[in-house]
Amino acid sequence: MPSVETLPIVVATLAFLLAGFVKGVIGLGLPTVSMGLLTLVMAPAKAASLLIVPSFVTNVWQLAAGPSFWRLARRLWPMLAGIILGTLAGTGLLTGSHAGQAAVALGLMLMLYAGLGLTSMRFSVAPAAEWWLGPLIGALTGLATAATGVFAIPAVPYLGALNLDKEDMIQALGLSFTASTIALAAALAAGGAFALGDVGISTAALAPAVLGMAVGGAMRSRFSERTFRRIFFGGLLVLGAHLASRAVI
């Protein structure tokens, strides 16, 4: 059996390996999976600081691999600005007394969206509404990020409602999550939960995350559009249930 000192290292390695694999397959899930598992052995704020470097590198990798960066950046910049402002406005929420309640709510929202996605029901956002809805979605996503360390809701449902194809969706997720990671790092630093010394520890978690993402990405390239959607929403359902159950326990 691992000792008390090595247990966090073992859990962190396995957490980032699994989280990277999930992210490679469906384009998201690294913060959700890693936060849920890491909080078994450490405080949420510490877990969030540990995921900064793996999240940043894997998301930059994800957004750089797609063909439409500048087009998506021009289209999504209002949402990205909202994410940054919302996250910074929520500085300190992750270590607050309501962090557990926020995690439960986030998990339930993920499950609800996944359930709708697995049915025939589809949402769509009109292009004319993106100029005002994007900043609102971004600000709400930022607040959720500051409270839980997870940046999926409501950004993921919003991006899904833009009717992007598979590769554009993956790249848009990478762009959104990169902005969220940078904003989360700034919020944690402002709240005293992320310092220069944490960068080295976070960097050590990069190797298993990248390995898992590479394996997952190789598998994703073999999937059809229909299969991808099933895995995407099925993954959201599992991740939401995991987050909610961990928060309740």
Rank of each mutant, 00 (worst) to 15 (best):
T32F: 07
V53P: 00
I26L: 13
P44T: 05
L37G: 01
V57P: 00
A43Y: 04
G36A: 15
P31C: 13
L30Q: 08
V41H: 00
N59A: 13
S55Y: 02
P31K: 11
L37A: 13
V25N: 09
V53C: 02
V33M: 14
F56Q: 04
G29Q: 06
G24F: 04
S34R: 00
I26P: 07
S34D: 03
S55Q: 12
P44W: 03
L50M: 14
A47H: 04
L30V: 11
G24S: 13
T39I: 14
F56V: 12
T58Q: 04
V41D: 01
L51I: 14
G29R: 05
F56C: 10
L40S: 11
K23N: 15
P44Q: 08
V53W: 00
L38T: 06
T58H: 03
S49T: 11
I52F: 03
G29K: 08
A48R: 05
T39Y: 00
S49L: 06
M35C: 09
V25S: 10
V25Q: 10
N59E: 13
F56T: 12
V57N: 07
L38Y: 06
L38C: 09
L37W: 00
L51D: 03
L50A: 11
L28G: 05
L30G: 08
G27P: 08
A47S: 12
L28H: 13
V41C: 03
A43E: 14
